[in-house]
Computed example of a mutant assay.
Amino acid sequence: MPRDSSTTPLLSEAPFAPELRSALADADAIDGFGTDVDATLAWAVAVGAVRGAERSLGEDWSLLAAVARRDVAAARILEPHLDALTILEQARRDGAAVDLSSIADGPDSSWGVFAAEGAGMRLEARADAGGWRLDGTKPWCSLAQHVSHALVTAWVGDERRLFAVALQAPGVRPRSGPWFARGLSHVVSAPVDFTSVPAVPVGEPGWYLRRPGFAAGGIGVAACWWGAALPLRDALLDAARRDGADQLSRLHLGRVDTALWAARLALQSAAREMDGIDAASEGPAFPGTLAARVRAVVADAVERTLAEAARALGPLPLVADEAHARRVADLELYLRQHHGERDVARIGVDISEGRGAW
């Protein structure tokens, strides 16, 4: 009897811990999983509380893929919360004294990670007698009206530094838009204005971008893209099995299957290569190049899946199947976190400058 891939790891050979199997079962019982932001976020907090400390990257990425297979928006909600918890763990392992008591962090805290920059917007951090404070505007702050806390990058002179903030603090003003997106319509990513907001530094200036775990976090997003594409492969498989299915239906399925299979191998290989990197000497010499390669491979596979599904299935599921239509719209927007040719060009820069050789 085949295993139920909805509750077994998709990228790791190790079985999910019982707590995570239970959490996935809880997700299946939530009415509005992914669309009810508050209920999904509360579930994400519970997942973060039971996720084991001794876990592998393959296990983490398998979890994200399994959630994205259920609902793209749910993975978009879970991923930054788990990423923030991982970043805080890494900072403490690296010797940073991260005391979050002053911003009322607790077991029910929900987290975002706001690290994007935007033209005409700048968030600055300044030290005063009472600690650190943030002033300015941060763009692309996902779910800022819902999460209780965030890790935010801010400028300290010419360097960026990571800070933890409570988003209910006086002086924090999340904007409601602009957000006209048809995909991920409930996962609003809009600017947040900060006025003299107390903040706790997490790591030294530049640590957030230099840390080895930065690359792993980027691949975690790619695992979400990959898991989100699997139901589209399932739809192509159903179409290829129908009575009267022609060779073209099998061609579309074969193209998608091979692309997603290759992307799965890339994710698995990266997990094996990067596991243990925080332990110092182990891991790839240039994790950023590895992460960029994996993201490019996965993004290409998912782009192909979207295109082949559109050709093979036609317009009917996009207008008559709410779950399919929402998945396509959500995934198309989520995938824009990959910057296409610009990200691939950076790989070329790395290779031409002697980084990331095979």
Rank of each mutant, 00 (worst) to 15 (best):
G177Q: 08
R3M: 12
L316Q: 15
D128I: 13
V47C: 10
T8D: 10
V294E: 00
A309I: 02
G177M: 10
G220E: 02
I219N: 05
I77N: 00
T289G: 11
A27G: 08
A116P: 06
T137Y: 09
G348R: 09
P315A: 14
R69A: 07
G48K: 08
D343T: 10
P178H: 09
S102H: 11
P201R: 10
P174W: 06
A299M: 01
A228D: 07
W226G: 00
T137A: 14
A119D: 15
S148N: 05
E332N: 10
R327M: 04
A66V: 07
D330S: 07
P170L: 08
A291F: 03
G203S: 09
C224E: 08
H146S: 13
V221A: 09
V297T: 15
V147K: 03
V200N: 01
Q168I: 07
D193T: 09
A53E: 13
T7W: 02
V50P: 01
A280F: 11
L134G: 02
A119W: 12
V298A: 04
R242G: 10
V344D: 06
G227L: 04
S196A: 15
R122G: 04
A164G: 07
R355V: 08
P212R: 13
R233N: 05
M274Y: 06
I277N: 01
V67D: 02
F114Q: 04
Q145M: 12
R161H: 13
V256H: 03
G288C: 03
G48M: 03
A127H: 13
L230W: 08
L333K: 04
